[in-house]
Design a protein around this nucleic acid. Structure first.
Lengths: 238, 238
DNA sequence: CGTAAATTTGAATGGATTCAAACGTGGTGG
DNA sequence: CCACCACGTTTGAATCCATTCAAATTTACG
């Protein structure tokens, strides 16, 4: 189930437009002017999904793409034999479901990690803006390249080396998303699915990291503190 | 070293334009008209690289992108600690170095597999066409999505499961590029680098496949014949 | 408070790596 | 033409890392 909300950001709660959005300079419409935006505003919803909610499923005809305002989204790739793997983790400012911009059905199943707030942008809005505002096309291309960089990173960093090295690299990646060393604890299941290892191995490595002081508790159960220097040394042994 | 050639395709040898190109409907300029193409023709070179040649290196400022007319290209991703991994294999009709279209430096090191013929398209040509012909922008987006699909596939199919399963899936992928069951033999080194396994393991699996009749010789040393049905059964065990 | 789900830990197994050596092939120079 | 070297491939044996299966423990939540 998903809950409808007209913007839950405290700084501009109650407004239904992107103009005053706190993360506007980081999202798809960064290059559009206020006037240009007004066309699209009426059709853009701000939605809050609970943790573990399915945004869309692999193969569905894509009717909209999304921008992440808060939280995180995992894209799941599925094998013919059933078991699946996390292909990418998307964070604040990232676009979910970019493929609908070229009329393609969704290529993954998108699931939220933690309570997540999304702006839902219907495909026709993109089409319309695309024709009238060539700058948006460039923004879309930048997004595609960004996704591609992430995908390549998942291959090179998160699918190569020992389990220990992979976990270290993932923790470094997650902690780089926030200023301080804190990073969201994404659960052993997701960790394993992202790194191509089992949940038991992920758990063992994390337990070992805790013993060695590479990670520590932050107090809140959802986050953990990372010893960046030590993790870096583990991630690329000289 | 690379050798300059004004189109080596026998069917239109000697011509210096794309209009009569045998694979034009599969490449970037498929949607452009003859008139629209004429602007760009003078600056587009047709180049033949020998096997194992470096087209460009990771981090270089991208001055051009390329279309593959013949042969194959591997994109190498590099880890900070030196060792590298094949991120993607590009085939006929694919674009190499798409990132220069948004002004980015090259994200990989691109190396040819077998003698390979490329059309070199300078970045300014893309920029110019992009402004005057909005259809090209869409073609570029389609290419990006294509690369993304390949990247995701590398993760889900080629980096998950046992070595046996991965090799089977790679052979199926390679054989799907040609009509019959033949597929280019990409060498154990590349095979391992693509699947995240060692050359010894790749060699052992291939030897086993030969014994079981999953692959056979074609006579020429560069290609091998695949038993698609058997490989499919190995690739996804029920 | 009690049940379901996620995490942790242990012990045995298995698959891939590592290190080593043998093999085949293509090219170079005597 | 053949010896010789370089290079990629193949095969073997020992080791190591991750998985599997199982059980215990903790956490989340109605």
């Amino acid at each position: 189930m998903k809950r409808r909300a007209i913007c839950t950001d405290p700084s501009w709660a109650g407004r239904a437009d992107c103009v005053h959005c706190a993360i506007r300079n980081r999202v798809l419409f960064a290059t559009l002017t206020v006037d240009e935006l007004n066309d699209a505003l009426l059709e853009i919803d701000d939605l809050v999904y609970r943790s573990g909610a399915v945004i869309y499923r692999h193969g569905e005809a894509g009717s909209a793409l999304f921008t992440i305002r808060r939280g995180m989204v995992k894209l799941m790739g599925e094998l013919p034999d059933g078991n699946q793997r996390i292909v990418r983790l998307l964070k604040i400012g990232d676009v979910v479901g970019l493929e609908v911009a070229i009329g393609s059905p969704y290529k993954h199943t998108a699931i939220t990690i933690g309570e997540t707030e999304l702006c839902r942008i219907p495909a026709p809005v993109i089409e319309r803006l695309d024709i009238s505002h060539p700058k948006l096309a460039r923004q879309l291309m930048v997004r595609w390249q960004n996704s591609l960089d992430n995908a390549d990173r998942a291959l090179v960093e998160f699918s190569t080396g020992t389990a220990e090295v992979r976990v270290a690299r993932l923790l470094l990646h997650l902690s780089s998303l926030s200023k301080d060393g804190t990073c969201v604890d994404i659960g052993r299941q997701d960790m394993g699915s992202m790194l191509g290892i089992t949940i038991e191995t992920a758990s063992r490595v994390m337990a070992d990291f805790r013993r060695r002081g590479a990670v520590g508790e932050t107090g809140r159960g959802e986050t953990c503190h990372c010893n960046v220097d030590l993790l870096k040394r583990i991630a690329s042994p000289d």
